[in-house]
């Protein structure tokens, strides 16, 4: 069952046809539920622009993005914000944790912002799986980079979103910790059948994904195929 569908997505900057920058040039892509997809490209290839479109952070020049049956850019800004809060989990390179809140408060923040009830059983499972049990009352400042990113992953999972978007999640970590965080991210995607789209420029990090999509000059150059039977069996 596809959870994410992108059809002929274009984002052009500048009106003059001579100087137009094509950040995204006619991208079409489908991601199945529970898939862990890596989008690889050099800086300036358009991968960040693509991720912003998927999260409804920016509007395209042309094209459609459908997440879990909701067409993103047919919504008003207000609805898009609510949609983002409920259905999209973000993991950023710089963790973006609130320094004055404890780990547990950081994780439950998006649920509380939405006025929802906290599902303790699920939350405990997530915290356990990410090895954060002993840290839930600590402040983010006292944690290592790897631990902070694990908190950010738990926060992204907390609302049970339709999709998790990870923007260079290991960009600030050393290579050993990067591998660890990636293993955890992959395990989360399998354990909770969570769809994850991750952008990175690191090939060895991307290898852990079920599918690697390469993007260059705003176009997909490889990887735009449905996953093979390896995952089905």
């Amino acid at each position: 069952m596809p959870i994410l569908n992108i059809v002929n997505l274009k984002k052009y900057y500048g009106k003059d046809p001579q100087t137009t920058v094509k950040a995204l040039d006619d991208i079409s892509l489908t991601v199945e539920k529970g898939e862990f997809v890596a989008i690889v490209g050099t800086s300036g290839s358009g991968k960040s622009t693509l991720l912003h479109m998927l999260g409804g952070l920016d509007r395209p020049t042309e094209g459609k993005v459908t997440v879990d049956g909701n067409e993103l850019f047919a919504m008003s800004d207000e609805k898009l914000t609510i949609f983002r809060r409920r259905s999209v989990g973000f993991v950023f390179q710089s963790y973006n944790l609130v320094p004055i809140l404890s780990v547990l408060e950081n994780i439950t923040l998006p649920i509380e912002l939405d006025g929802g009830r906290i599902d303790r059983t699920y939350l405990d499972e997530v915290i356990q799986a990410l090895g954060l049990q002993s840290k839930i009352h600590s402040l983010p400042g006292s944690l290592s980079g790897g631990q902070q990113q694990r908190v950010a992953i738990a926060r992204a999972l907390a609302t049970k979103p339709s999709i998790i978007l990870a923007d260079e999640p290991t960009g600030n970590l050393d290579s050993k910790t990067s591998q660890e965080v990636l293993i955890l991210l992959k395990q989360m995607s399998e354990k909770f059948n969570q769809t994850i789209v991750m952008i990175t420029h690191n090939e060895s990090i991307a290898q852990m994904a079920d599918r690697i999509i390469r993007i260059e000059d705003g176009r997909i150059v490889s990887g735009n195929a449905t996953p093979s039977g390896a995952r089905i069996l």
């Binding site: 090895g131 290592s144 790897g146 631990q147 050993k176 910790t177 591998q179 660890e180 293993i183 955890l184």
Partner: peptide, 13 residues
Amino acid sequence: IRITAEGNEMFTR
């Protein structure tokens, strides 16, 4: 063939 084992934050490799 070289076998190396060491512990890190969450995993032993």
